[in-house]
Amino acid sequence: MTLDDINRRKFVRNTGLGVLAFNTGGIPTLLTPQQAYAQSVKFSHLAQADAALLAAFADHLLPGAAANGIAHFVDHQLGVDAQECLLMCKYFPAIRAPFDVFYQTGLAALRQAVKAQYDGVFEALSAAEKDALTESLWRGQVDKWLGPPPPLFYMMVRSDAVDVVYGTKDGFDALNIPYMAHILPQEKW
């Protein structure tokens, strides 16, 4: 299905359910971030290495985030203007549009910090090492950090992870709570 085949209301409805328009070979195609991940849709804004690091870090913060397509979700939203953007970072006074700067500098700082502390890459760290690094990010006590405030970066990636894992109807189902989308009235007023 392409965007030409759907009306705006349906698009909005699908967006609410976690479906976004991804560029697949030049054709906008409606996919969930999870589907985009499974189909290895090419990233438009994040470098491949940044996307991989984002997915790995998010998956440590909330296991399942990678397979639920966090990197594709963030990548898609970085291509949307600030008003339409669906990333929670838009709320935060310390994070100004364009938001790709926040993610790129945060990921670069994370990569650099891992290199400085462990002489390696995040993906190869042990679980204990990832925990130690995560704790230091949350406490804002990470050495060699040259990005946005570490706790802020941690919280935003964690929020994105929660969005893709628990923020859609599938996520509510996983928590065994009803999604309860609005029931449209039978009559307009």
Binding site: V12, T15, L17, A82, Q83, L86, Y91, A97, G167
Partner: peptide, 22 residues
């Protein structure tokens, strides 16, 4: 009719631009 029940989608209702510096 443009509204949808989603905390993610609802971010469109918030301010986005032009930037307000705090």
């Amino acid at each position: 009719d443009d509204l949808y029940s989603s905390q993610i989608w609802a971010r469109r209702l918030k301010w986005g631009a032009p930037t307000v510096e705090e």
